[in-house]
Simulated assay, not measured.
Amino acid sequence: MSGSALLRARGVTRWYGRGSALVRAVDEVDLEVPAGQTLAVMGPSGCGKSTLLHLLGGLQRPTDGEIWLAGHRIDTMSERALARLRRQHIGFVFQSFHLMDELTAVENVELAALLAGQSPRRARRRALDLLDRVGLADRARHLPSALSGGQRQRVAIARALSNEPLIVLADEPTGNLDSAATLEVLRLFEDLRTAGQTLVVVTHDARIAAIADRMISMRDGAFADDSRFAGAGNGSAAGTGTIYGGWR
């Protein structure tokens, strides 16, 4: 496989159960994602796309196969190293936002940076800058309960960017949003794509394809189709990054 890919998977499988109850959630998937590419993984509920995203982000371990990020194999890492990897180099965006209800928007965004060891002053400055970037500077001191669904998802995206991650992995990011809020989030993802942020978005929403360089369709745990669009990212927009410190 190409050494220039930021994210690589080879023969990745995730099976549950055994015998007649065996479920092939992800079935021998091969994947390369160059830096700077926006990839949409689409398919119906239960096709394995969310499981694949969790495997790529180190939230689950594969039954078999290899997963590499920026030249480092991550599926064999210790739990402590995986936790460090997720804190420092991967941004996650989830369908249900996963914001802390008792924290304000700016506190939610800066929390990831604080956990990664940034100073409080730097984390707060970065959080305010990101909230401004996603159009929520005037909502920085609001609790999640005072924000709309689209605003909460934009806070979650700002949080995912707080540590300048190598890659952002989004799991059904528009699944709980109405049409207007979905358009807000899609515009934000388009801005991230233009800026060269590497994105992998799993969804059943065809509108995601409008902001993608490439779209993979999944069925029964495997890739059914792989389409690349004109001007697709090929790694020139951003480097693969340097990962400092021990991962093991």
Rank of each mutant, 00 (worst) to 15 (best):
V93L: 10
L103R: 08
P62W: 11
E107P: 06
Q60S: 14
W68Y: 11
R73G: 02
V106Q: 09
T76G: 12
W68T: 10
Q60W: 02
A113C: 07
L59M: 15
L59T: 10
D101Y: 00
L69I: 12
L114D: 04
L115D: 06
N108H: 11
L82R: 03
Q95H: 12
T76D: 03
A112Y: 00
S78T: 14
V93E: 08
D64K: 13
D75W: 05
E79H: 09
V106Y: 02
L85D: 02
E110R: 15
N108V: 08
I67L: 12
H98E: 14
G91T: 01
D75P: 05
M77N: 00
D101H: 03
R73Q: 09
A113P: 06
L114G: 04
E110P: 02
L82A: 05
L82D: 04
D101A: 09
A83W: 03
T63L: 14
V106I: 07
M77I: 00
S78I: 01
A105C: 02
L59K: 13
E110M: 15
N108Q: 10
R86M: 07
L82F: 01
I74P: 02
T63A: 13
N108A: 11
L82P: 01
G71T: 12
A113Y: 05
Q88F: 00
R73W: 00
E66M: 07
H98T: 05
L82G: 06
I67M: 11
I67Q: 08
R80Q: 14
P62V: 07
D101R: 04
I67C: 12
D64N: 11
R84Y: 07
D64W: 03
F92Q: 06
M100R: 04
A105K: 03
L115M: 15
F92Y: 13
A105E: 02
F97L: 07
N108G: 12
G65K: 13
V109A: 13
L114F: 04
Q95R: 12
H72K: 07
N108R: 11
A112F: 00
F97K: 09
A83I: 04
P62I: 10
R73D: 00
R80W: 03
E102I: 04
L111K: 03
Q60N: 15
Q88C: 09
E66Y: 03
H89R: 06
L69G: 12
E79W: 02
R80Y: 03
A83S: 15
A112C: 01
S96K: 13
R84D: 14
L82H: 00
M100A: 15
L69A: 13
V109F: 11
N108W: 09
L115R: 04
E66Q: 14
T63N: 12
H72L: 01
Q95T: 10
G65A: 14
H89I: 01
R86E: 08
M100I: 15
V109E: 08
M100N: 05
H89C: 01
D101W: 00
L82N: 02
R80T: 14
A116M: 13
N108D: 11
H98F: 14
A70S: 15
S96V: 09
Q88Y: 00
W68F: 11
D101I: 00
R84A: 12
H89L: 01
L115C: 08
G91C: 01
